Simulated assay, not measured.
Amino acid sequence: MVNQQDPRVLRTRQLIREAFRELLRKKDFDSITINDIAQRATINRATFYAHYEDKYALLEEITEQAFRDRIPDQVLNARDFTDEICDGLIMMTYHYIMDFYQIYRMDSKPIASLVDEKIKQLLQQSIENILRRGNLHFMEDRQTKIISAMTASAIYGAAHAWLTVGENDRTDLLVGIVRPYVMNGLDLPKAP
C-alpha cells in the first residue's frame, strides 16, 4: 500500500495531475491516453497505475479538488443558509463551471456528464453540511438530503444554463434570478 503522506507520493500525484490538466487544455478527454499522461509527468505507466485506477479516477479527483479549493471560507463555516451563502454558492458554481468548460476541452458528452454529476454531488454535500451545522439539525437525515439535492440542482442547473444562454459578464442578473427562487423554496421548517 502506498503511503499517501509520503512527500514522494504527493509529488508524483501532483506531477500526474498537472500533466493531465495540461493535456486537457490541448486534447479532448477521449483522446488522452495513460501513456500521454505518464510521458508528460515523466513517470512510467506502472507508476500512474500505482496512484490511479484510470484516467476517469484522475478526472474525478481533479474535479473534486478544484471544486473544494473554490469553496469560500464563509460557506465552509456557515451555520445557516442565508442570502449571502446562497449568493456565494451560485457565484462559485457558475465560475467553476465556466472555468472548467473554457479551460478544459469537454468535447465528450459522457465525460461532461460525469463532471457535471460530480459537481452537483459536491454542491449537495456542501449544502447538507450547512443545514446540519445550523438550526436544522433536528430534521430527519432523508429530509436534509432531499432539500440539499433540490437546492443543489436548482443552483447548478441555473449556473449551467447561464453559461449557455445568459449574459456571462452579468452574474448579478444570475444571482438576482436564482437566489429568490432558491430562498423561497427553502422556506425551511422552524425548530420545535
Rank of each mutant, 00 (worst) to 15 (best):
D141Q: 08
K27P: 11
E128G: 04
I32F: 04
D73E: 15
A152T: 00
M106E: 12
M150E: 11
L123D: 08
E53Q: 13
F81T: 02
Q74L: 12
L23Q: 09
Y101F: 10
T171S: 10
R105S: 00
Q14H: 10
N44L: 07
T63S: 08
G157K: 00
E61H: 13
R11M: 12
V175N: 05
D36T: 07
I90M: 04
L186A: 10
S113P: 05
T33H: 06
P189H: 05
T63E: 02
L131V: 00
Q143P: 02
R70M: 15
T151W: 00
I155C: 00
V175Y: 04
L136P: 00
D83F: 15
D141L: 01
F29H: 12
A154W: 03
V2N: 07
L173F: 07
I119S: 00
D6R: 08
S153M: 03
I155Y: 01
I97F: 09
N44R: 12
Q102G: 03
D187E: 12
H51Y: 04
R8E: 14
G157H: 01
M183P: 09
K190N: 09
A154I: 04
L58A: 09
H95E: 05
W162Q: 04
L122V: 02
L136G: 02
C86I: 02
P110G: 03
L10H: 02
M98T: 05
Y156K: 07
V182C: 01
S113E: 14
G185N: 14
Q39R: 14
Q121V: 04
L76N: 15
P72K: 03
I85S: 03
L123I: 10
I37M: 07
R179Q: 15
P180L: 06
D54E: 00
D36G: 08
I119A: 00
N168Y: 08
A191M: 12
K190H: 12
F29T: 05
V2I: 15
Q125G: 08
D141V: 07
T93G: 07
A57R: 13
A154V: 01
R21W: 10
I127W: 00
I71M: 03
L114A: 08
R17G: 10
A159T: 15
G157C: 01
T47R: 03
L163Y: 13
P7M: 02
L23S: 08
R17E: 15
Y156F: 15
T164Q: 10
G176Q: 09
I43N: 13
Q74A: 14
Y94T: 02
Y96T: 00
